[in-house]
Computed example of a mutant assay.
Amino acid sequence: MVNDLDIKRLDDIIFKSDKIAVICFFSSNYKPSLETIVELSKIVDEQKDFDLYKVDFIKNKDLVKNFEIITVPTVIFFNNGCEIYRTSGTLNTKQLRNIIKYVKLC
């Protein structure tokens, strides 16, 4: 399941969650970034220790600025309040699965 993220909930999601937070910055005007959310959602739904959040690049300029996002899709992984991995650009399912495996080891 994909949840919307806004700046009001950011601290609770990043710093207080017992799961790895996956934040995907996307644009509804750019189909590859929407496809990334769909693929990530499928993968994360198989995992018990991940939560997926989406942030609209156009509607959430405060978060875009806070995380210094310059392109979509950008996916950031957080664990215990720390950014553990970041990737930008379109990725296929195999690449996303490999990133998930890597992040689980961090």
Score class of each variant (00 low, 15 high):
F15L: 10
I58T: 11
F25H: 10
V64F: 01
D11N: 09
K42A: 06
Y53I: 01
D18L: 10
V44L: 00
T87H: 05
T36N: 14
K65R: 14
N3C: 02
S28Q: 12
A21L: 07
C82E: 14
D6F: 06
P32F: 03
I58K: 13
I20G: 05
I43G: 00
I69G: 02
L10N: 03
N60F: 11
D56A: 03
I13V: 13
L96H: 05
K54Q: 12
E83D: 06
F78K: 12
V55H: 07
K48P: 09
K54T: 02
E39F: 00
I69M: 02
P73G: 10
L63A: 07
L52Q: 00
D18R: 12
I14A: 02
D56N: 13
K59W: 00
T36P: 02
F25A: 03
R9S: 13
D11F: 04
I37F: 03
T93N: 07
N92E: 04
C24L: 08
L96T: 05
N98F: 09
Q95M: 12
R97S: 12
L91Q: 09
K8D: 09
F25Y: 12
K8T: 10
C82D: 15
K104P: 03
L96C: 04
P73S: 09
E39S: 13
V22E: 07
I14V: 15
F25L: 12
G89E: 08
V55Y: 07
D62S: 15
I20C: 08
K19N: 10
V64I: 14
D51I: 05
I37T: 08
C24V: 07
D51E: 11
N3Y: 13
I100V: 15
N98Q: 12
F25N: 04
M1Y: 10
E68L: 14
L34P: 00
K8A: 09
V2A: 05
T71Q: 15
S88A: 12
L10T: 04
T36Y: 00
N29Q: 15
I13T: 08
K59C: 06
D4A: 09
S17Q: 05
L52K: 01
K42N: 07
F77K: 12
I70S: 14
L40G: 03
L96Y: 11
L91S: 05
P73A: 08
K48D: 13
K61W: 03
N98A: 11
E35G: 01
E35N: 07
N60Y: 13
S27Y: 05
K48C: 10
K65S: 14
F15V: 04
Y102D: 08
V72Q: 04
N80C: 10
T71V: 15
D11K: 09
Y30F: 12
K94Y: 09
I69C: 04
S17I: 03
N92A: 00
I69F: 00
L96F: 11
K59E: 11
D12L: 11
Y85M: 05
V75W: 05
I43K: 01
F57E: 01
E68H: 14
I37A: 08
V64E: 01
K94D: 10
E39V: 04
K104G: 07
N79K: 15
I76F: 09
A21H: 02
K31H: 09
L10W: 06
E68N: 15
D6Y: 09
P73L: 06
I14D: 00
D51S: 10
D6M: 02
A21N: 08
V22T: 13
